[in-house]
Design a protein around this nucleic acid. Structure first.
Lengths: 240, 240
DNA sequence: AAGTGGTCTAGACCACTCT
DNA sequence: GAGTGGTCTAGACCACTTG
C-alpha cells in the first residue's frame, strides 16, 4: 500500500496508478479521500497528490468539485458514444421516435470470420431491426461473450440502449472502440427488412468495443439505410 | 506584457494564453524561453510557469525536451490526418502506389449549397481522380478560398498531398475538421471515372477543415469506390 | 561545467460547499 | 465554521543535454 520513494518511477505516477487500480477494482467507490488525507496516508506532499489526481481527471476517471470532494466520474455514455455509435442525419430533425424489433437471439457458434475478430468459439447473438416512427432504419447484429449475452437477454430487447444495461446493471465499463465504416449493396433479405430496393446502397459499420482491461465486450455489425443515416466525426489536432 | 495578479483569472491561465498568442502570431519562433527566465520575466513562481506550459503541451502546441528546452511542436500531419482523412483498407496491404490525375481546376461561383457551407461567393476548385497503381480509387473535389487556391494551383497537382504545401509553403496550420460519411449510388459520369458499374455503391465523404482561428481552409467532397476503401475510427472514453 | 526540464516538499491563502 | 479543492510561492535536488 505504500509508495516506493527509491523507485525510478515518479511518486505522482505511482500514486496515480495505485488510485486507478483501486477505483477500477471497486475498492474506492464514489468519492476518493480528501487530498490532505491522501497526503498523510502516503507521506507525500499535497502537490504530488494533486498531480496524481490531475492525471486521473484528464483520463476521464475522476472529477473534482470545489468545496465538496473528488468523485469517480461516470460520464454519461452519450458524451462519447454519441461520437462513436452513429449520427442520425434526419431522425432528430424530423422529431421521429426510435424503436427496435427483435429478430433473433441465442448462442451461436463462431464462423471463421467471427473467430478471427473475437477469439471466441461461441457468442451470444442479438439481431434487431432499428426503427424510427416504425420506418426501418438499420439492421443491427450484436455479438457478446456468452455469459454477458445471457444476462442481457433478460432485459427488454425492444429497447435500443443496451449500453446502459451493460454499465449500470452488469457493471461493465466500455472504454475503447474501433470501428470501420464501409458501403455495399444489400442482400435480398436485408433489402426486404429495410424496405428498400436491392439496388440502393447501404452503409456498413463494424465495431469492436472493449472494456478498460482490453477484453472484447461487444462486436457489432450494422447495416444502415443510406438515405436515413450518415456518420459524423469531429476531430481536432490536439486529440491524439 | 505583464500579468494581472488582481484578476480573477488564475495566473497560469493568463500566462498560458499569453504564450499561446505569441506562438500563434509567430512572435516566439522555435523555442520558448527557459522556465527560470519566464519566471523572472512575469514575476511568478516556477510552478506557475510550469503549469502554464503543461497546458500548452497537452493542447499539442508545445513539446519539452529534458535538458534542452521547450519547443514549439510541429506534429507530423499524418498523426492526426491519418485518423481523419481516410483509411485505406486494401492499398497498403497490396503495396500499391498512390497517384493522382487532375481533372479540372479554377475559380467557380458557389452554388447555394456551397454558399451555405463556406459562406463564400467564389471558391477555387480542384478536382482530381485518385489512383492506386493506376486503378481509380476516388474522385476528390476540393474547394478553397480563392486566394489560397490560386497559390496551391502553382504546385504539382498530380501529387496527392496538398496539406504539406498548405502548412510548409503557405504557413496555414490546419486545426479542426468535421466530416460526414455517407453512401449513395454514383452518377453515370462518376461510375465511368471510377471504372465501376452504376449499380455499385460508393462512399461519400464531406469534410470541412478549419485553421486555429476557425476560418474555413478547405471543403472536400470525395467519392470512394466501396470495394477499395473503408473508413476507420478509433475512439476512447478519455478523448472528449 | 552550466543550463535545462522533471520531481518534490512545506506552507500559505482563497473560494466554495456542506450542515 | 469546518472541510474541501484551487492557486501560488520559494526553494531544493535530480537527470539530462549541450558546449
Amino acid at each position: 500500500m505504500a509508495l516506493d520513494a527509491e523507485s525510478s518511477i515518479p511518486l505522482h505516477i505511482q500514486l496515480s496508478e495505485l488510485l486507478k487500480g483501486e477505483i477500477l477494482q471497486g475498492t474506492i467507490k464514489e468519492k476518493i479521500p480528501p487530498e490532505r488525507v491522501l497526503m498523510e496516508l502516503y507521506s507525500v506532499s499535497r502537490s504530488t497528490v494533486r498531480r496524481a489526481i490531475a492525471a486521473l481527471i484528464s483520463e476521464g476517471i475522476l472529477e473534482s468539485r470545489r468545496g465538496s470532494g473528488t468523485y469517480i466520474y461516470n460520464r454519461p455514455l452519450e458524451e462519447w458514444l454519441g461520437n462513436l455509435v452513429t449520427y442520425n442525419k434526419t431522425i432528430d430533425d424530423l422529431g421521429m421516435k426510435p424503436g427496435a424489433k427483435l429478430l433473433s437471439q441465442g448462442v451461436v457458434a463462431s464462423t471463421q470470420e467471427l473467430k478471427d475478430i473475437t477469439q471466441m468459439d461461441e457468442l451470444y447473438l442479438i439481431n434487431r431491426l432499428r426503427l424510427a416512427d416504425n420506418i426501418p432504419i438499420a439492421i443491427e447484429t450484436q455479438y457478446y461473450p456468452v455469459n454477458i449475452g445471457k444476462q442481457l437477454s433478460k432485459f427488454n430487447l425492444d429497447e435500443i440502449v443496451l449500453y446502459e444495461v451493460l454499465e449500470s446493471s452488469l457493471g461493465i465499463k466500455l472504454w475503447e472502440a474501433d470501428q470501420v465504416i464501409s458501403s455495399t449493396m444489400p442482400t435480398k433479405e436485408e433489402a426486404q427488412l429495410l424496405d428498400i430496393l436491392e439496388c440502393e446502397s447501404v452503409l456498413v459499420i463494424e465495431r469492436s468495443t472493449c472494456d478498460y482491461d482490453g477484453n472484447l465486450v461487444e462486436y457489432l455489425r450494422g447495416i444502415f439505410r443510406s438515405d436515413m443515416y450518415a456518420f459524423r466525426i469531429k476531430l481536432g489536432r490536439n486529440k491524439l
